[in-house]
């Protein structure tokens, strides 16, 4: 168990370092980093001062060292557009994205797992065929298209739901469904095949031979075992919820980091872009770590190994 945790921790740390390298080069990709990292109206002296502080004339490893030092001390520079520390601007919007991501996760997990389990226990039946269709459509139709279609039907035509913005539970419905769309399909597929595999095992047969009621056979014995692959897929999907927020938030005018990123890019507010990318990525990597440790709780073979 400790060995497992330690190796996962090291892996996570390496990944975070990798992310910092990617973000570091992000600003240097365009050739002249000062053009990105300083407001357009800055003077030549400002430009020189920035060059100095970033060490842009130094060799890359030294520059990277300065960059990492900034990260560790929590100093990501100031946002040009908002005139305050980029980290503060980010943290101001991040909860909105998380709320939407959480709502999407619930929709995806509940929808995907329930349809998948139903498909598995009625394999070959009508519900099962429905799962196949859902899985296929989920894979093929991009979430932003679903978002626009939802707006078209439920907001423009039927006028049941508000088109955009974040105000109250009703505004969560469409963005959460659109954002959950792809993951729900993938989870449906995974749940179905994972459940079918488990239902074939000897311990399910023995549970039935013991006279365990079918409902307990499915939910207690089979589902818990099917859960490990489902959760590992789900933990990968969490990335989609946050990553996909860029598009979903733009469609539904959701005041989260996705929208913030677009604004920052178009106003060339690169310190803010760097902050968003680095902190969000790191957050997701840590979340994945958490999920992996959760497996250990679910599966005693990992916990006690």
């Amino acid at each position: 168990m400790t060995g497992y945790i330690v190796s996962r921790l090291i892996q996570t740390l390496v990944t975070i370092v990798g992310i910092s390298v990617v973000v570091f080069f992000l600003a240097r990709l365009s050739g002249d980093a000062t053009a990105l990292l300083i407001p357009p109206e800055a003077t030549a002296e400002d430009r020189e001062a920035l060059k100095e502080s970033l060490g842009l004339d130094d060799p890359l490893p030294v520059q990277y060292g300065i960059f990492v030092k900034g990260i560790i001390t929590g100093d990501f520079g100031d946002s040009f557009r908002f005139g305050e520390p980029a980290l503060d601007v980010f943290l101001d919007r991040f909860p909105n994205t998380l709320k939407l991501a959480a709502a999407s996760a619930v929709v995806a997990l509940l929808g995907g797992v329930s349809v998948g389990v139903l498909g598995a226990i009625r394999a070959g039946g009508f519900v099962d065929r429905l799962t196949t269709v859902i899985a296929l459509l989920g894979q093929a139709i991009p979430s932003f298209l679903i978002g626009i279609m939802l707006i078209l039907f439920f907001a423009v035509e039927l006028r049941w739901l508000p088109t955009s913005g974040m105000a109250g539970p009703k505004t969560f419905i469409m963005p959460a469904i659109a954002s959950a769309w792809y993951s729900m399909a993938a989870l449906t597929r995974m749940t179905r095949s994972s459940m079918l595999d488990v239902m074939e095992t000897d311990y399910i047969r023995l549970a039935r031979l013991k006279g365990v009621p079918e409902r307990a056979v499915i939910w207690k014995h089979a589902f818990r075992n099917a859960l490990v692959p489902i959760l590992s897929l789900f933990s990968l999907q969490i990335i989609f919820f946050v990553s996909g927020s860029v598009v979903i938030e733009q469609i539904f005018a959701w005041p989260g980091i996705g929208q913030l990123t677009i604004q920052a890019i178009f106003s060339r507010d690169y310190p803010l872009v760097q902050t968003i990318v680095f902190v969000t990525s790191t957050f997701l990597v840590l979340l994945n770590l958490g999920v992996d440790l959760l497996y250990a709780v679910i599966d005693p073979r990992i916990r006690l190994a």
Partner: peptide
């Protein structure tokens, strides 16, 4: 080896 559910005591 396979008849007992691996995730329950």
């Amino acid at each position: 080896m396979t008849s007992l559910n691996p995730v329950y005591s």
